[in-house]
Write a protein that binds this DNA or RNA. Sequence first.
RNA 1: GGGCGAAUAGCUCAGUUGGGAGAGCGCUUCCCUUACAAGGAAGAUGUCGGGGGUUCAAGUCCCUCUUCGCCCACCA
Length: 890
Amino acid sequence: MNTDNEKLPKVYDHFQVEDKWYAYWLDKKYFHAEIDPSRENYCITIPPPNVTGSLHIGHALCYTIHDVLGRWKRMKGFNTLILPGTDHAGIATQNKVEQQLAEEGLTRFNIGREKFQERVWKWKEHYGGTIIMQLKRLGCSFDWERERFTMDEGYADAVQEAFVKMFDKGYIYRGARVVNWCPRCHTGISDLEVEYEEENSHLWFINYPLADGSGYIQVATTRPETMLGDTAVAVNPEDKRYMQCIGKTAILPIVGREIPIVDDSFVDPEFGTGAVKVTPAHDPNDYEIGQRHKLPQIVVIGPEGKMTDEAGKYAGLDRYEARKRIVEELKEKGLLAKIEDYTHSVGKCQRCGTTIEPLLSEQWFVRMKELAQPAIDAVKDGRVRFVPDRYTRIYLDWMENIKDWCISRQLWWGHRIPVWKCADCGEYFASKTPADVCPKCGSTNIEQDPDVLDTWFSSALWPFATLGWPKETPELKNFFPTNVLITARDIIYLWVARMIFQSLQFMDNVPFHDVYIYATVLNEEGRRMSKSLGTGVDPLDLIERFGSDALRYALIQQAGMGQDMRFSDSRVENTRNFGNKIWNLSRFVMMNLEGFDLATYSGGFGSKQSEAMGLKLEDKWILSRLNRVAQIVNDGFGNYDMDDAARSLYDFLWSEFADWYVELAKPRLRTDEREHVQYMLWHVLETSMRLLHPVMPFITEEIWQALPHEGESIMVAPFPEADEILMNDEAEQQMAAVMESVKLIRNLRAEVGVAPSKRVNIVAVSDNSEMIELLKAAADGIKSLARVETFEVASESPDGDKGQYVSAHTAGFSVFMAVAGLIDVEKETKKIASEIASIDKDLARVNGKLSNEKFLKGAPAEIVEKERRIQSELTDKKSKLEERLEAISS
RNA sequence: GGGCGAAUAGCUCAGUUGGGAGAGCGCUUCCCUUACAAGGAAGAUGUCGGGGGUUCAAGUCCCUCUUCGCCCACCA
């Protein structure tokens, strides 16, 4: 290979490299998975991002993890399918488009359902496109030929199929309930879509006069405006204070309605006055009380958050204005006993922040009990495993206390509910195809339900609907169930749980085997990164500045087991530096590969071959380290410990390969070892690039392509497996001693202030023959790394004028550095004395242990042995220092 | 009210089954030594949140307290 013609630029330029290789990979169709029964599958259907906007760093982490695992498995020979797509995100996207309309002074009602839907589709095209572009820039090796959208044609069919089947099986029912109503979004939402916030408010105490004139009963409320809809007062049946009131009636102030006083064990006698006003149409608990006592339901607040006609003179007022005025009127009438400050949590719409109005309305629900059970079993018996494990209980607790799921939404963007109602006989029926006649009475006077389905109803089908369900496609047969779901912890209930029960229902199998809940990304201030909080960071910005590889590595390096991570730009900058280090490391190797021919090295490193090749200590050492890293990386990816894998590669490449091996290789390249060293450098670098490729795909491809290689892309090259034969404890220990000697000499130089350019004369001393041999063998390397002119190895300290040496001591050997002129005896004495003091401290600890019989008896033999070794090392070092002290002061 | 997680160097975080406290950034000193100044060499910095306990041995296990974050709950 002629390296002169292919000089790599000095600074890594991520711009041209990333675009070039992504286009190449696409062109080669490496991302595309065809069905291949001869190979084991690896399949993930990605969590489809909402088409509400662009992706932030949290998403970048999620999809980087997908891509790391995908690339790893692909290189390991799995038929790998990472299936991408996007989610229509009903309410969220509709809100975005409504905001857009509002800027034009329009509402969805102005332009009508059809036109509105057109606008949302346009929005989807735009932002869906942006998201896909972001994923591509991130380097994601997803199968774009199989990209899906939760409202594409086939998907719509799956949603209808699922709904109709569930409807016909009786899992879906229509019911009047108090639901969480968002007056701004104008729709009901599920319990999971409500977010609670602490609010400072008041507790109003109101006297309700008793009808018999015998006084009044006092109730406490946080929502005085709902009193207009009260149809009872409830007290606890055990509450002695109110026993005589039960069965009596009270006169509802302002309204004048006579309402019963009922007993219900729901009421907590400790809270407030122990008497509760009951508003069945505006509070889920009151609704339940109302059901138990057959109370009427009076809706006094309408869908817009305004008082209804039932509110009499307050009709038409905003709910908060009504509250003010009602409190005012009660005060005037002398019925307001007191007002207390009170802090409580108030439900807000997850999507727009508007305070939820509990409102009685008719909705479609999924009956959950029966569906939940198999989903509970699947996790309990381990068919689905949560990582980290602590989420198992969170899931199970929720599933075991599950409530029915409100799936209808009064929105225009989403899957229209495939239910028709017959105007003549009142029958509701579901149908996948547009219906025109009532199956019960034959009437054609039928109308489709205007509502759409909760987005999560469609998302719940994702792992199988994307593979073709309800059709029995080859993809579905081949790739289902998928291997793992990688997702954020905030959608365990909303999505994960629902995929599990829907999959068990429709596929009779779990949707995935592992659920990996990754870290929540926080910004520098420790706040959750979220678009709606305004704390999102655009990954594209970081990719532009530092490169995709840098961003990916920074994310993976920090992606510990579900731990939150604070993310800041400086992290990515550091990783960019790592990329540059790898780049220059590769430049060095490449510059020195002249004349290297890969073809002559087809054997690799077997134990015998390595002997035959005459491996030096540093060769054995770097091969040992390389294979240990290969082990850690494979284990790390396999156990979702990706940070461990990433960090070990960083340390290996920078602190071992570049800092030590390459430095030791430099002089060897000028000797007859050249060819062998070339092979070593190539081998270690090429293997490292393959190990690193899943995390940093672009730079590794660029380097790999520039190196001699076999195959057309690193993406499809085999992933390195650890070879235990090459793991070599002895070499690692010996190398540690050599490195220690270099550090000691460098340290002495710095201490005495010898200029880096100046070479020094060293005498290394040991009374251990093996150590002497080792130091002798390593002399060339030590001389080069520590800038040593003469390096003498002796069994005794240099005699003669000891005032001409400074020294440093470690276990097994000492180094003496000749200084020009005499040493500063005072300074040297001080240094040695302080070292002795520090050794004494350690020695005291070790001696204490070793003189403790309990320790000697209780601790395992190897630990005792280790302490003994430490003791002898310290003692040895101390005596050397004392000897030295003696020598210089004499 | 219940549950979960976190607390380790100035900052952000690693620390596998209990066995001589680590990295990156920042800081100090020196160096453009032909792979790399986005770099190299040397160095300083810790009551491992507090208090108990188990153990020969605790950052690691148990109890308790404090502070922060998150989740769940029918907080009228």
